[in-house]
Design a binder for these strands. Structure first.
Length: 644
RNA sequence: GCCGAUAUAGCUCAGUUUGGUAGAGCGGCUGAUUCGUAAUCAGUAGGUCACCGGUUCAAGUCCGGUUAUCGGCUCCA
C-alpha cells in the first residue's frame, strides 16, 4: 500500500493510505461539525466529489453547503435530478441538451415536440421528490471519448453527441459521466453525494431557447428552477421574487401615473404622463447643472440627418440593421438618428480649433431611435425611442488620462446622487478586428487603467471585448435588490475623428487629429428611470419626487386655508398638491400613501387657527405642527442634501 | 425575429371547460355625511369582450390569421 499525505491548508499534514475518499480524508482532518457541512471538496485546487479517491499527496478543503460554490453544486445536481424526473415521466419523447446552474437557480433544456407548460410542473416536482427520497448516490465514472459517443448515440441523445464531438475536437480523449438511478448525464461535476441533499426546490417557469444560443439552431424548451439547502432560504428567495414583482416599473409606472405605452402610438415608444414628465425634468435639470459645473457645454441637435452623414460616419455599414429606413425629403434620403455623435462632430467641424481650447466637453440629452426586435422590448428598459445622456470630449493625447479621470469622477458622483453606491466596473480591451494604430490603443487603454487606479476604482478586464473603434469602461450599478444594470459607458474612439477629418492646430502649427471620447452616465433616461422606479420601489427621494407634499383637509371648514397654504408653498418652491375632496382623512392618507407622497400636510381647525400644518411622513412618522416657512425650509434642506 | 402563454369597463379580475348576444370590486359621476393619521353610505353612468376572417340558426366562448403584452432565447442604452 502506498501512503500519501493529506492536509487542510495551513494545518499539519497526516499520512494515510492512498485511495481513501475525499470524504474520509476530511474525516481525518476536520471536526464532525466542520465536515458535516461539506458538500464537495477542493483537492489541490480542483473541485471534486466527496466520493473521489485520493491517489497523491493532497491539500484538501471542504466546499461548504452554505458557500456560493456549494449552492452552485446543489443547483447543478438539482438540474440533473429534474432531467431524470423528466426522462422518467416523458421518456422517449424527450432529448436532453444542457442543464447548468445559474445565478439563483438552474435550468435544463429539452427537445420535445410539444413544449412543457407550467401545468407539467406538479408532476415533475413530485417525481423529483421521489428521487430525493430514494437517496440515490451520484456516481461518477470516466469513459474514453469513443465509448461515450457510442453510448449517447445509442440513447439517441444527439445533443450530447454534438457536445462530445466538440470536446473531441478540442483534444479531449475522455469524459466524465454522472449517474443517479438510471439517469446518466455527461458532466464535469462535482455533485452532491446523493439526491437526499436536495431539501427544497421549486420549478419556476418555462421558456424557449435556442440550442447553444444560436437562432439558426433548433428551439428547445427550457425549464427554470431553483434549489436551496434550507426551506427557509427558498421561501426567502420566493419572497424576493414577490418583492421584485411589486417593484416592477411597468406596474408602478401605471399606479403612479408616470408613463404609458399604447398600441396606437407603437411598441417601444414612451408617452410620459405629467408626473413622469416632471420626474424626468427634475433628473434632467440636475444632470445639466452637474455637467455645467464640471465644465461641459450643452448642445441640441436634430433627430434626422441626410443619409450621407450616416454613410460618412459608418453607421449605415455597421449599425444599419438597427436604423429605421430612410424617408425622402425633396428627393434626398434622410434617416432618424440612432446616435448623436455625428452631430457633435458637425458642431466641432463648424469652426477651426486650437490645442489651447482643449479639452472640449459637449453634452446633450439626445433622443435617438433604434430598431429593436419585437421580442426584446420591455417597458422602459428596452424601447425604440430613447434619450441618451450623451457627451463627447475632444482632447489631445496627453489630456486623455485626466479627462477619463474627470469623467469617472462625475460619473460616480451622479450615480451616488441617484442612490447607487455599489457597482461592478469592466475594462474592455482591443478586439480582433479594430481600427486605429496599436500605439493609440496602448496609450488609451493605459489612460483608462491609470485613471481608474488613481480613482481607486476596482475593475475587471474583459480582454478583446472592446468596440472596434477603441477601448471602453462599462459600469454596472447594483440596485436595492442586488440586481445589476449596465448604464454608464466610457469609450475612446479613433474612428470617427478619422472619418470626419477632424483636426486641430497644435503648438507646432501643424494639423493634428483630436482624440474623441463618447460617454453616457445613465445610459438611457428611459431605462435609468425604470431602474430608479424599481430601486426606490416608486418612493423617490424628495429632490426628485414629482409630488413632494399633499395637503389633506379634515373637513370643508379648512378649504380656504388649504388653498392659501397651497399657493404659498408653491411660491416657496415646494411641489405641493391638494386633496380637498369631501372624504375621510383616512381615505386621503391611504391614497397619498399609495402614491408614495413624501409628506402629507394635515390641516384641521387647530392648524388653521395657529397658521401651521401637521406633517406626516410617508413612513408613518408624524412631525410636530410647523409653520409654512419651517416646512418649506425642511423641504429645501432635504433636497439640497439629496443632490449635494 | 424564434418558442410558449395571455388579451373582457379607466384599473384589478370573474365569465371560456359544457356556444344562447356580458359581471364584480376599485375608480368616475350624483346625493347624503363634515369626519384627526392606510378605504363612510346610497344611487348611477361606463364594454363593437384587441383586430380580421371562418364554423354555426346563434360566438366573449370553437377554428384560422394579425397586432400587442408577458416569460425566456438572441440582441442591447
Amino acid at each position: 500500500m502506498t501512503e500519501i499525505s493529506i492536509s487542510v491548508p495551513g494545518e499539519e499534514a497526516k499520512t494515510v493510505e492512498a485511495g481513501i475518499s475525499a470524504q474520509e480524508a476530511l474525516k481525518e482532518l476536520l471536526s464532525k461539525k466542520q465536515r458535516k457541512q461539506a458538500i464537495a471538496a477542493l483537492c489541490n485546487g480542483e473541485r471534486t466529489d466527496l466520493s473521489a479517491p485520493l491517489q497523491t499527496d493532497t491539500v484538501i478543503e471542504p466546499i461548504l453547503a452554505s458557500s456560493d460554490e456549494g449552492m452552485h453544486i446543489l443547483r447543478h445536481s438539482s438540474a440533473h435530478i429534474m432531467a431524470q424526473a423528466v426522462k422518467e415521466l416523458f421518456g422517449q419523447d424527450v432529448k436532453v441538451a444542457i442543464g447548468p446552474a445559474i445565478e439563483d437557480g438552474y435550468y435544463y433544456d429539452f427537445d420535445r415536440d410539444t413544449a412543457f407548460t407550467p401545468d407539467d410542473f406538479a408532476a415533475i416536482e413530485e417525481r423529483m421528490a421521489e428521487i430525493v427520497k430514494a437517496r440515490l448516490p451520484f456516481e461518477r465514472r470516466t469513459l474514453p471519448m469513443t465509448e461515450a459517443i457510442t453510448f449517447f448515440s445509442e440513447q439517441g441523445e444527439e445533443y450530447k453527441v454534438e457536445l462530445l464531438k466538440d470536446l473531441e475536437q478540442k483534444g479531449e480523449n475522455s469524459v466524465s459521466l454522472y449517474q443517479q438511478g438510471d439517469f446518466i448525464d455527461l458532466c464535469r461535476g462535482p455533485h452532491i453525494p446523493d439526491t437526499s441533499w436536495l431539501k427544497s426546490f421549486k420549478l419556476l417557469r418555462v421558456a424557449g431557447s435556442y440550442w447553444r444560443g444560436d437562432e439558426h439552431k433548433p428551439m428547445l424548451t427550457r425549464i427554470y428552477g431553483t434549489a436551496f439547502f434550507d426551506k427557509k432560504d427558498l421561501k426567502k428567495y420566493l419572497n424576493r421574487l414577490e418583492e421584485a414583482k411589486k417593484r416592477d416599473h411597468r406596474k408602478l409606472g401605471k399606479q403612479l401615473g408616470l408613463f404609458t405605452i399604447q398600441d396606437e402610438v407603437g411598441p417601444g415608444l414612451i408617452l410620459w404622463q405629467p408626473r413622469g414628465s416632471l420626474l424626468r425634468k427634475l433628473i434632467e435639470d440636475y444632470w445639466k447643472d452637474a455637467h455645467y459645473k464640471h465644465g461641459y457645454d450643452l448642445l441640441y441637435t436634430p433627430h434626422i440627418a441626410r443619409q450621407d452623414l450616416w454613410k460618412t460616419s459608418g453607421h449605415l455599414d455597421f449599425y444599419g440593421e438597427n436604423m429605421y429606413s430612410a424617408m425622402e425629403i425633396d428627393e434626398v434620403a434622410y434617416q432618424l438618428k440612432p446616435m448623436n455623435c455625428p452631430f457633435h462632430i458637425g458642431v466641432y467641424n463648424a469652426t477651426k480649433h486650437s490645442y489651447r481650447e482643449f479639452p472640449v466637453r459637449w453634452c446633450e440629452l439626445g433622443t435617438v431611435y433604434r430598431y429593436e426586435r419585437t421580442g426584446a422590448l420591455h417597458g422602459l428598459m428596452r424601447v425604440r425611442g430613447f434619450t441618451q445622456d450623451d457627451a463627447h470630449i475632444f482632447c489631445r493625447p496627453d489630456q486623455l488620462e485626466e479627462e477619463i479621470f474627470n469623467i469617472i469622477d462625475l460619473n460616480l458622483q451622479v450615480l451616488k446622487t441617484f442612490g447607487f453606491a455599489e457597482y461592478d466596473v469592466y475594462l474592455s480591451t482591443r478586439p480582433e478586428k479594430y481600427v486605429g494604430s496599436d500605439e493609440h490603443w496602448e496609450l488609451s487603454t493605459k489612460a483608462l487603467q491609470q485613471a481608474m487606479d488613481k480613482k481607486g476604482l476596482a475593475y475587471a478586464v474583459d480582454p478583446g471585448e472592446g468596440v472596434f473603434y477603441g477601448p471602453k469602461i462599462d459600469i454596472k450599478i447594483k440596485d436595492q435588490l442586488g440586481r445589476s444594470w449596465q448604464c454608464s459607458t466610457i469609450q475612446v474612439d479613433f474612428n470617427l475623428p478619422e472619418r470626419f477629418g477632424m483636426t486641430y492646430t497644435g503648438q507646432d502649427g501643424a494639423e493634428h487629429q483630436p482624440i474623441m471620447i463618447h460617454r453616457a452616465l445613465m445610459g438611457s433616461l428611459e431605462r435609468f428611470i425604470g431602474v430608479l422606479i424599481e430601486h426606490y420601489a416608486g418612493a423617490f427621494p424628495l429632490w426628485m419626487a414629482p409630488e413632494q407634499a399633499r395637503i389633506l383637509n379634515i373637513t370643508d371648514t379648512q378649504v380656504d386655508y388649504c388653498v392659501q397654504v397651497h399657493a404659498e408653498l408653491r411660491k416657496a418652491g415646494v411641489r405641493v398638491e391638494q386633496d380637498l375632496r369631501n372624504e375621510k382623512l383616512n381615505y386621503k392618507i391611504r391614497e397619498a400613501q399609495m402614491m408614495k407622497t413624501p409628506y402629507m400636510l394635515i390641516i384641521g381647525d387647530r392648524e388653521m387657527e395657529e397658521g401651521t400644518v401637521t406633517v406626516r411622513k410617508r413612513n408613518g412618522e408624524n412631525l410636530p405642527p410647523m409653520t409654512l416657512q419651517e416646512f418649506a425650509d425642511l423641504v429645501s434642506q432635504e433636497c439640497e442634501q439629496g443632490t449635494a
